[in-house]
């Protein structure tokens, strides 16, 4: 009896001994991490608001708006594996819905509700016929939808301004007027932070895990009873609503919308942004949004605006080949290596 119980005690002891301090440290570490994240977040919000000149604050507002769209593509492509070239189309649907209603004097809340409703409809229209498709076929059909949308925009000039585009009334919600850079920044940032929190929360939900399984293996997903069609539809709808709201904010902040903002190339650049930042990372979506808004300005300031497309193409090919998890993934693995060697 003694001889048999001793080894059991001996085996059980190490985990117990190790577990007690670990369990005690965990909440403390978790609290520290939360505090660091909250302080970092507040600093990230406050620094641009307090220190950026008006032009860069205005760009920061656009980054926030674009981040909502890239977060949507992060859900659709990065998490669910659906290669869509219609993300800019979804953005355009939101932007033009906001423009049309805004020009008729509708309140921002009405605009927002209409943007969400239109985005849901457009997302469903794209999602349902493409549920059976993947890879190139899905890319091609979503591309076709985008080209049709651009065609409709150009050929409905009385409503949309046609190929010349249209001036959009600045978004005004309460005291926040998007024609003032600081307020534009806040108007873009607050929904973007909400979208970020939603996508982060997705990781902890069953839906988020279903998306990952659909991305990695539809066969495995089917075998484990994951409703693939439902998961894909929800993913498309999330991407569409995120992009629609992003487009609405972009129009209200930028003050102008035109078909080239939402054509095939705009969709490709959104994909570039998501892949470069890291298709599976929330931080990557922000990095991608910053890339898409800030880099053209940097090249313009340097007097070489044409290099943006060149660098974009090269980066997309290189990052996709050499760093599948994007710049964020690259940075994380570098930090991990450094910690291991330290």
């Amino acid at each position: 009896m003694t001889s048999t119980s001793l080894p059991v005690t001996a085996q059980a002891a190490p985990p117990d001994v190790a577990a007690v301090p670990a369990a005690a440290e965990k909440p403390a570490r978790s609290r520290r991490q939360t505090l660091v994240v909250v302080v970092g977040l507040l600093a990230a919000i406050a620094v641009p608001a307090l220190t950026f000149p008006a032009f860069w604050l205005f760009l920061a507002a656009q980054v926030a708006a674009y981040a909502i769209a890239t977060l949507g593509l992060n859900v659709l492509y990065g998490r669910t594996g659906q290669l869509s070239l219609a993300q800019a189309t979804f953005m355009g649907a939101g932007a033009y819905t906001g423009y049309v209603l805004g020009s008729q004097g509708q309140a921002p809340l009405v605009q927002l509700l209409a943007v969400v409703a239109v985005s849901l409809v457009v997302g469903a229209v794209v999602a349902v016929p493409t549920l059976r498709l993947s890879g190139l076929r899905l890319a091609l059909v979503t591309l076709a939808v985008g080209e049709l949308f651009a065609w409709v925009l150009v050929h409905t000039s009385p409503l949309t301004g046609g190929s010349q585009g249209a001036n959009v009334e600045p978004l005004v919600i309460g005291p926040l007027d998007a024609s003032v850079p600081l307020f534009a920044y806040l108007l873009g940032l607050l929904p973007a932070l909400l979208a970020t929190a939603l996508v982060l929360h997705l990781d902890r939900t069953q839906l988020g895990r279903r998306m990952l399984l659909v991305r990695d293996s539809e066969l495995a997903a089917r075998a484990t009873g994951v409703p693939i069609i439902q998961t894909k539809i929800v993913s498309f709808l999330l991407a569409s609503v995120f992009a629609g709201i992003a487009g609405w904010l972009y129009g209200g902040i930028n003050g102008f919308v035109s078909p080239p903002d939402f054509n095939l190339f705009a969709s490709v650049y959104l994909l570039v942004a998501v892949v470069i930042g890291g298709a599976r990372s929330v931080l990557g979506a922000w990095v991608g949004a910053a890339y898409i808004v800030v880099l053209p300005q940097v090249f313009t300031a340097l007097g070489i605006p044409n290099l943006y497309a060149l660098v974009g193409g090269a980066l997309l090919a290189l990052v996709a080949l050499l760093a599948p998890d994007g710049l964020v993934g690259l940075a994380r693995s570098a930090v991990g290596r450094r910690r291991r060697t330290a």
Binding site: G81, G135, G313
Partner: peptide, 17 residues
Amino acid sequence: VGLDLVVTLGLFLLIAA
């Protein structure tokens, strides 16, 4: 899966630029 599309989209932009 699908990486060829992403890489060649990058090449598409690169060659045009």
